[in-house]
Design a binder for these strands. Structure first.
Lengths: 229, 229
DNA sequence: TTAATATTGTCACAAATTGAGACAATAAAT
DNA sequence: ATTTATTGTCTCAATTTGTGACAATATTAA
């Protein structure tokens, strides 16, 4: 897409959560030839739906379609724009001739996404050196107000977990009750009681129970579940 | 504020809730010389914080400072823009010379506000004929996607009522437990049990109890409360 | 072959929360 | 003094949640 075809002053940022090794992770990109780390973000085409723009950006970076995606806040303070940083990033990428508009003030619509860690093929974009997973408790420093955006995303995720969504999309299609509990624990940051957790989740009637899996471990085999319905 | 000093393609819309006569009401404005009704909205100054812009707009229309205000969603579909409507509105207001930019596509950040119905001095702005309260169940048809915006505001208000906020700002400083219950019932759209409601609210420890009021009614006088703390 | 170990599915019981009605207290009208 | 409407609070039942316990079972060790 041609850069002249974006809406000025409007950007999006995405907080992409994944789950692996019992830990919650997020996608962070690093700008080429700098030490600047940022959330994956982008711009909206002149004739493009906002949500579609975000999905496009995520597809480009992760290869995934049909991501679970939810908008949670729009950041619109003047002070969030830092032209000096932006200039430095752009100069490390071959000048700023064509894209002075990127130095302007931006209002950013923030989204969070839940994706299956294992399905992803990470692809850094043109101006980034890498796009990688980081443990939530071991993040590099983020530029702009991206730390604040992340924290608000996490708070929203936590409060939505109790009501709206389940661990959707952070797990493969088939998973055990224990897997799901680990996801909940990673998101909420606390241990849950096994019996009560199982009772609550099954009570929601959103899971489909499948055949047991024989994992080879030295104990009773757990049922497998999926989110079918 | 000079119209040339607004960010293009960015607007806000506000759903302003008030409470009177046991009913929930919202502010709706009517454009001059048209039959178009809309939510109060506006634009963001080039060097103005987003939240500040919304507060400015509400202050102009209601005279109120320090409104309870919360952002809940940003509407960004291409299809939400209706240049024909906008053109009609502008032509009923003395032409479109200076303000072609208003025919463009807009992304709108939506807020809801809770205010004390009685404190308000309604003032229509330059291009509106009126700015008035309407019962939630007796609204005129709204233009653009404003009906959808309203419904999402109401859903957000309902779900926040149970956790975050209380009936704050919809009531005068001093109110009775029954007043507060009426607000909850109006927002949730259902009757609540008196005893349980009182127990729950008092259990939150957010209310300060004051002297009883002698209303002149033929029964035991209720305590007054305020949100102090 | 039997016993030990780890983990699972489920239940039982206690604790906490919520729903619903009951009752005395009280401000004004009769 | 009696009646009426409404309030503040309480009690009991119903429901939900927290916690541990127990049998079942897949594998390993003896």
């Amino acid at each position: 897409m041609n850069p002249n075809e974006f809406l000025k002053h409007i950007a999006y940022d995405s907080v992409v959560f994944g789950f692996s090794g019992e830990k919650l992770k997020i996608l962070v990109m690093k700008y080429k030839n700098t030490d600047y780390y940022a959330l994956p973000g982008g711009f909206v085409g002149l004739e493009e739906d906002l949500n579609a723009a975000v999905r496009r950006g995520l597809k480009e970076r992760t290869g995934l379609d049909n991501i679970f995606l939810e908008q949670f806040y729009t950041f619109g303070n003047v002070s969030r724009s830092k032209p000096e940083f932006m200039r430095a990033i752009m100069e490390s990428n071959g000048g700023i001739n064509e894209s002075r508009w990127m130095l302007d003030r931006f209002i950013s619509i923030a989204y969070y996404a839940l994706i299956n860690y294992n399905d992803v093929e990470l692809r850094p974009d043109a101006i980034s050196e890498s796009c990688d997973w980081y443990d939530l408790d071991n993040l590099p420093e983020l530029i702009f107000d991206h730390k604040e955006i992340l924290e608000k995303a996490l708070a929203t995720l936590r409060s939505n977990l109790e009501t709206k969504l389940m661990g959707v999309n952070l797990l493969p299609t088939m998973f055990t009750m224990k897997d799901l509990q680990k996801v909940y624990e990673a998101i909420l940051g606390e241990k849950l009681h096994r019996g009560a957790f199982q009772r609550k989740i099954l009570g929601m009637n959103l899971l489909k129970r499948h055949e047991k899996q024989f994992s080879g471990a030295a104990h009773k085999a757990p049922f497998l579940y999926s989110f079918e319905r």
